[in-house]
C-alpha cells in the first residue's frame, strides 16, 4: 500500500472520531450508552481519542436490566474509573417498581425490551439530546438501513420510512424541542473489525468473552447460563460446558457458544470461521422476522 493510503481500520476509526466530534459540537447534552460489552468498550476508546488531551465531554450511561453477568459490572466500574468519565446508571427494576414498565409474563421474563422505557425516561430526566450507541449495520438487517444520525421523535420512536438522507460526511443534527438523536459511530464496522481493533489497541474486555466452564441449559438451541433469573422447564437439565459469549446482555436471552477460544487471537480465528452471526445466539432476535425493527421503532437502542 502506498504511503498516503490509510488502512481500512484506520479509516473506520477516523470516521467514528469525526462523528463523535460532530455530535459534541452539534448537540448540547450528548450521552454515551454503555453496556460493558465489547462495542461500547471500543466506543469509549474512540471517544478518548476524539477529544484527547481533553476528557470525554459527555457522561456514560448504563441501562441496567438487573439481569447482568457479574463480570460485566465489575469491568464497567473499573473502566469508568480508569477513563475518568462520569457514569450514570438507571435500573429497569426501578421502572417496574414505579409502574412505568411491566415485567413480561411467563417463566424467565426478558427485560431486554423493557430497557427502552427506562432509557427513554432517562433521556427525558437528563434532557439528553443525543445518545451514542455501539450498534453496527452488519448486526441485523433492520440495522442495515440505519443512519449514523438517527432521528427520534418526541416519543423516542424511529420511523424507518422517514429517515433523513445522509450524504458525504455532512450530518444534520437539527431538531425540534423534545426530539433527540441516536448516533452510531460504528455503523460501518463489522464484528471482525471490532475484534481486530480490540487487538490493535490492546483493550481489555470482560472475562465472559473468553472460553470458560459454565453450567448452562440448552433452550431451543440457545445456551443460557445458570443464574437466579433462569428456571428450568420440564425436561430441561443443566450441564457443564466449555463456552464463551459473543455478546453481553440480559442473561435471560444472551446465549453462549461452545468454544475453546481463551485468547483474543483464538477469538479472532473463531470469528473468521464463524458461520452464525453474533446475534444468532440471542433469543430476543429470534422472536420474529421483524423483532429488531419493531423494538427499534419503539425507541430501542
Amino acid at each position: 500500500m502506498s504511503r498516503y493510503n490509510l488502512t481500512h481500520l484506520k479509516q473506520l476509526e477516523s470516521e467514528a472520531i469525526y462523528i463523535m466530534r460532530e455530535v459534541a459540537s452539534q448537540f448540547e447534552k450528548p450521552v454515551l450508552l454503555f453496556s460493558g460489552g465489547k462495542d461500547s468498550i471500543v466506543m469509549v476508546r474512540l471517544a478518548q481519542k476524539a477529544f484527547w488531551p481533553a476528557k470525554i465531554p459527555f457522561p456514560l450511561m448504563h441501562i441496567d436490566t438487573g439481569h447482568n453477568f457479574e463480570e460485566t459490572i465489575s469491568f464497567r466500574d473499573q473502566l469508568v474509573e480508569q477513563v475518568g468519565a462520569k457514569l450514570i446508571v438507571r435500573y429497569v427494576e426501578d421502572s417496574i417498581k414505579s409502574g412505568r414498565a411491566v415485567e413480561e409474563k411467563g417463566l424467565n421474563p426478558s427485560r431486554n425490551g423493557l430497557q427502552t422505557i427506562t432509557l427513554l425516561d432517562a433521556v427525558e430526566e437528563f434532557q439528553f439530546d443525543a445518545a451514542f450507541g455501539g450498534a453496527r449495520r452488519d448486526e441485523e438487517k433492520a440495522r442495515a438501513k440505519e443512519r449514523f444520525f438517527s432521528h427520534r421523535d418526541e416519543f423516542g420512536q424511529w420511523d424507518p420510512k422517514n429517515q433523513r438522507p445522509e450524504l458525504w460526511n455532512i450530518f444534520n443534527g437539527k431538531k425540534h424541542v423534545g426530539e433527540h438523536f441516536r448516533v452510531f459511530p460504528l455503523s460501518n464496522w463489522t464484528e471482525m473489525d471490532v475484534w481486530q481493533y480490540i487487538a490493535l489497541e490492546k483493550l481489555s474486555i470482560p472475562s465472559i468473552y473468553f472460553s470458560h466452564q459454565r453450567v448452562i441449559v440448552n433452550r431451543n438451541n440457545v445456551l443460557l447460563g445458570k443464574s437466579s433469573f433462569i428456571t428450568l422447564l420440564d425436561g430441561e437439565t443443566y450441564e457443564e460446558k466449555t463456552v464463551r459469549f459473543r455478546t453481553v446482555g440480559d442473561m435471560t436471552c444472551t446465549g453462549a457458544v461452545e468454544s475453546d477460544a481463551d485468547t483474543l487471537e483464538k477469538i479472532i480465528q473463531e470469528v473468521a470461521s464463524a458461520r452464525i452471526t453474533e446475534r444468532g445466539a440471542r433469543a430476543d432476535d429470534q422472536r420474529s422476522e421483524a423483532a429488531m425493527e419493531d423494538r427499534k421503532k419503539q425507541g430501542y437502542f
Partner: peptide, 24 residues
Amino acid sequence: LLTDGLRAEREQGITIDVAYRYFA
C-alpha cells in the same frame, strides 16, 4: 431477502432505502 431489511419492503417486494452491506 438478504438486503430487504424493513417489513414494508418484504411485504411489497421492493427496496425502499439504501442498505449497507459488508464483506472482505
